[in-house]
Simulated assay, not measured.
Amino acid sequence: MGHYVGVDVGLRSTSLCIIDEKGKVCPEREVASEIDELAATIRGFAEHVDGVALETGLHG
């Protein structure tokens, strides 16, 4: 089963939302903006990722 990951990157923390191919939200988490923590969180819920949406930008 495929999964899609939404990533909202911040300086200190990153919000992740993983959904399955049926649109069901698997986890929705805020984690430290560290590659190892991001990868571990995604791997914990998805064996295969079909797509990633990335949001970055300055607020102000």
Rank of each mutant, 00 (worst) to 15 (best):
L11Q: 10
L11A: 11
L11H: 07
L11W: 03
S13Q: 07
S13R: 04
S13T: 14
T14N: 09
T14Y: 03
T14M: 02
S15E: 13
S15F: 12
S15C: 11
L16Q: 03
C17V: 13
I18V: 14
I19D: 11
I19L: 09
I19E: 13
D20C: 01
D20P: 04
D20W: 11
D20T: 04
E21I: 04
E21K: 14
K22D: 15
K22F: 10
K22L: 10
K22P: 00
G23D: 13
G23W: 14
K24C: 10
K24N: 15
K24V: 12
K24I: 14
K24G: 09
K24H: 12
V25S: 10
V25A: 13
C26E: 15
P27K: 00
P27N: 04
E28P: 00
R29A: 10
R29V: 12
E30P: 01
V31D: 01
V31S: 00
A32R: 06
A32E: 09
S33T: 14
S33Q: 06
S33K: 01
S33L: 04
S33C: 06
E34Y: 03
D36Y: 07
D36K: 11
D36S: 08
E37W: 02
E37P: 00
E37L: 04
L38M: 11
L38G: 08
A39L: 06
A39I: 01
A39S: 07
A39V: 05
A40I: 00
A40C: 05
A40S: 10
